[in-house]
Amino acid sequence: MFEALLGNGLILKKIIESIKELVTEVNFEVTSEAISLQAMDASHVALVVLVLRASEFEEYRCDRPQTLGVSITNLAKLLKIAGNDDSIILRAEDEAHVLTLVFTGKNNEKMCEFNLNLLTLDSEHLGIPEQEYSAEVTMSSSEFSRICRELTQVTDTLNLSVDKESVKFAVSGDIGTGSITMKANNSDKSEEKLILNVSDTVSMAFALRYLNLFNKASSLSDEVVLSLSPEVPVVLKFAFDLGELKYFLAPKIAE
């Protein structure tokens, strides 16, 4: 038996909204420690890694570890029915064929119960070694989101350069070229604050289309942490009370 009660159901709605355009069918691994998933997008250039810690749920029980194959598309449809103030219970019997979702209103005035059919999915796990990155950028997630969105109007590729003092977001397209440079600072204003942890200067290129999809998670966390090393995928980390959502994206490489 697996059962998890989340008082703040909105966070689960936001998480699924943040990944549903990247991954459509995923295996959730449920253990006594956490609910987790790791899934690549269809073109295998982006990876989503989610961990929700058991200790952060209001109630949590997992008698034996289990893999739950879930259609994210269908889960998103059901979660749309849950109100923003609802609590959500996730429940599955051992060797389950369905995932039961229960949405309960704040004043217990209304309860919705749905059984989502589970899928048997091939798992394609990537082994990701722990790694030291050359540069780590911590900044406002809404500011990063805004920069990516605005620069998408110029072109489809973001050139990201980080040194010890600043981070530069540069683009080059048919209409011209441009860049946005932000200096490291410890502003009281969260949208201005930028923390750099840089051992080596890096300069890399990424598809803005993917970064814009990742930035849907900016509703989960005020901050985003970008980890960069030459010639390896960039990591965008969004941390929140319940756990963390990380996106990996392979760099673009000049032909």
């Binding site: 990537l126 070694p129 290129a205 760099p251």
Partner: peptide
Amino acid sequence: GKYQEVLSKFYYVG
């Protein structure tokens, strides 16, 4: 033109 490598180039498939 530019292209994007698949992730399995960087991380082993387990």
